[in-house]
Design a protein around this nucleic acid. Structure first.
Lengths: 216, 216
DNA sequence: GCCGAACCGTAACGTTCGTTACGGCAATAG
DNA sequence: CTATTGCCGTAACGAACGTTACGGTTCGGC
């Protein structure tokens, strides 16, 4: 009764994870299409197994993207009680992690594939990437923002809107340029500078200038 | 001697433009690959002509993207002499135009194709889109920013950096979400609100608070 | 009226790739 | 030992597609 079968809603087995990792490795190879043959060869498995486990090519790609995207965590951040310095540190850490992720080969390849197949209307890869990327990001940062508001450090009405602005300040033109193939190198130092700038600018827009504790 | 031949560095002929428009039309059709057959059928021309004019499939796609991208103008803006209201108006106009462009079906399809083919390493579509999109944008806005600085309305050291921040404030997560297939509708009213917000936030970050004319 | 060039429509070729089918091997249960 | 199961490796099928070739048509020039 231990048939791994289709990992539709279950955790993939170790062997299946090997296959998914091989698929991901194929996605990262520049100038090479991800074919069932290449995946089978790279994973040292038969194509019959691929079809038995994942149904078809779309199933394989979807499972790979879903599996990889689900473990791209930008680091959960506990709000705790905040002062301004702690808030800035959290924002910078958050932005650093996210910039490192989106400038990675993996993220670039996954986004390219998802966008490329989004035009064909067949795949749901775009929704998966969006759900585990942009929206998971918002869900993780919003508690921090709201804690900052509760601590009278930030001022905004809609945390979604505030997050979107922070997103823009983090990303600027970086993601678009990378996805379009621009040779933009993000060194560790550059990432930290960008993260610090984004946090500073966000504080300048949404920070409370005079924290007069007149309420309560 | 009037052989249109390859429009490598020349303006395409009217008939060739019809073909390019048909190609673009095919690119916009959701869930359909842009094949030489479909283009030939849509353009009412023979495949022989396609190959004679554009060399191969890559040449056709490149010519189409280049032709279309070259005429996506976000509206040239004359700096002139500026006061704060005029600067805000220019920024808002700029942002409105750009948001309208990137949310158009054409832009989305072109970016998707360019990014999808950027992973294969064969195409130069990404560079073309980048050159006519992101970089042309910067080249058009920078004079405005520098005029604003000359008028003591803005304060920054690097106009490139200032533009990149404005870019982020304009785009936020909109372009990524659209490219990944998110059903994000940008109505005309929304676009104007977003443009106004971007301009306001940019002024908050780079605007000169107290224009004390102490320099001399 | 004839010629050649350009072009249309379509057939044909070769390749790639998704998908299926088949034979063999290792392990495990009875 | 034997049967069954799960999987590997490979061959084969069929469709799609890029590319080339060919016959027929239109049109401008002599």
């Amino acid at each position: 009764m231990s048939q791994p079968e289709a990992p539709t809603e279950q955790q993939p087995s170790p062997r299946q994870i090997e296959v998914l990792e091989a698929t991901l490795r194929q996605m990262l190879v520049e100038g090479q299409a991800v074919t069932m043959n290449s995946v089978a060869r790279a994973a040292s498995c038969s194509k019959e197994t691929l079809y038995k486990w994942f149904g078809d090519r779309e199933g394989l790609l979807t499972a790979t993207v879903k599996w990889k995207a689900s473990r791209v965590h930008v680091g959960a951040i506990e709000p705790g009680r905040l002062d301004r310095a702690a808030l800035v540190a959290r924002l910078e850490e958050f932005a650093s992690n996210w910039l490192a992720v989106i400038s990675s080969e993996t993220s670039i390849a996954l986004n390219r594939i998802a966008m490329g197949e989004a035009g064909t209307g067949k795949h749901s890869l775009g929704a998966i990437v969006l759900e585990n990327g942009r929206f998971a990001l918002g869900a993780r940062l919003k508690p921090v923002l709201e804690a900052g508001r509760a601590a009278r450090l930030l001022e905004f009405q809609d945390s979604e809107e505030a997050f979107r602005t922070f997103f823009g300040l983090m990303a600027r033109d970086v993601q678009i340029r990378l996805l379009l193939g621009d040779a933009l190198v993000l060194s560790s130092a550059t990432i930290h500078q960008e993260a610090a700038r984004a946090a500073t600018q966000f504080l300048a827009l949404y920070g409370v200038e005079n924290p007069t504790g007149s309420a309560g």
